[in-house]
């Protein structure tokens, strides 16, 4: 067995986790294009962090509804709606960052996203549900 064969076997053994990793996180954005102006990279990073904080605020809100407020009808559903929204935002944030970073590196237009509108509709739904609970739960 040559060192090359050994390497190949080693690669096969590690291929499965690597493929799973790639299916979750996609390609490393640094693999394409050239390094952009550092200010753009920082701006993209801050946007990612803003999305993460939005997710954390939704999660804290959902947990707060469930653990801080007194028992009322629809409390669990309201909490769950906030938590699912938070999870959706968190789960898409890395991919969004990587897509933006790739676009910055290759000089292509930033990809559009429908998450802001989804989030607006979701938060509005939470507000309406909370208002309905206050008005009708007597």
């Amino acid at each position: 067995m040559t060192p090359d064969d050994h390497d190949r076997e080693h690669d096969d053994m590690h291929d499965r986790p690597r493929r799973a990793w790639r299916s979750i996180f996609g390609e490393d954005p640094r693999a394409v294009g050239s390094e952009p102006d550092y200010r753009f990279s920082f701006a993209n990073e801050r946007t990612f962090l803003a999305w993460i904080r939005t997710a954390l605020a939704l999660l804290a809100g959902g947990l707060g509804v469930e653990t801080v407020l007194p028992e009322f009808g629809g409390r669990k559903e309201l909490g769950l709606l906030l938590l699912v929204l938070g999870m959706a935002v968190a789960a898409t944030s890395y991919r969004r960052w990587a897509r933006n970073e790739r676009a910055l590196r290759t000089g292509t237009p930033l990809p559009p996203s429908n998450l802001p509108s989804l989030l607006a509709v979701g938060v509005a739904a939470v507000g309406l549900a909370a208002a309905a609970i206050i008005l009708f739960a007597e």
Binding site: A55, E66, T67, G79, L83
Partner: peptide, 13 residues
């Protein structure tokens, strides 16, 4: 953050 959201959802369920 995603892992935390899973635990938070379990906490409510």
């Amino acid at each position: 953050t995603v892992a935390f959201s899973v635990v938070a959802i379990l906490r409510v369920l």
